[in-house]
Amino acid sequence: MSVLVGNDTKLVVSGITGREGTFHTLNNRAYGTNVVAGVTPGKGGQDVEGIPVFDTLHKAVDETGANTAMIFVPPRFAADAILEAEDAGIELIIAITEGIPAHDELRVFNHIQSKGTSRLVGPNCPGILSPGKANVGIIPASFFREGQVGVVSRSGTLTYQIGNELAQRGFGNSSIVGIGGDPVPGSNFIDIIKLFEADDQTELIVMSGEIGGDAEEQAAEYIKEHVTKPVIGYIAGFTAPPGKQMGHAGAIVSGSKGTAAAKAEALEACGVRVGRTPTAVADIAAEILGA
């Protein structure tokens, strides 16, 4: 199997007619993802290379049975688009949009959680790739093939780097899940690790974290209690100075909290081996799985 996206995915893209939206939607479809609809208010009835466009997400779901939404609208419209997808009954909402205001994210997260019917991945994430099955988002799929390593990461390009190091050792992936670099991600490490633990195809889990927040520390405790599969950790940002924002809105060290050293220590204390470079992660994977 794989997690979250796969052969059952029926994708609707919110913001399909934007330049980036169109480009990545067509890439996803070319990879084999079942893209059933797009949404752009006012452009209902048109199509994007054969993909029907609807005015509202509700209409798209009614007509096509879409179960997964990808959010590709600009930041000022993104919270609304996510809430619309939730209201339309979409099970999995993947928000690629970067730069959504923090208070918007907070309201969206709490609303989705209180309703309890949808799962949000992102925002500010590269999406989810299940090699050989489906790609939803902007991950360059040609660098990855099907295999037994599940990857969950806060960063996009760093995921490609780690995936590439693994690929060079001959390891493929069950799924690659970008949870995003924002302060309030819809899904955290624990949510995704839970899925990998239950997934038959996944034999090894790689979690790639970075400075800021305490999601890695919480994951460490969870892994210790609940995860039987081997987990390898990586943390970016050992050289980041406190108080400076390193690109991702979530990547900021406040005082001694959220430092890379503290996170690596927390993971190791819970039995998770931590690679100090992306290459070292692949080395450990080779040791565990037998190269």
């Binding site: 760093l158 780097q161 670099g181 970075e210 970016a236 690109g247 990547a251 470079t277």
Partner: peptide, 30 residues
């Protein structure tokens, strides 16, 4: 570099190689 995570990782790898990074610069996606 491109992407915040990869740039942070690059700073770390340079530091591990014995160097001192002068800056973090994320040229961004695309």
């Amino acid at each position: 570099g491109n992407g915040a995570g990869l740039v942070m990782s690059t700073l770390d790898v340079v530091a591990q190689a014995g160097g001192k990074p002068a800056n973090f610069l994320d040229a961004g996606g695309g």
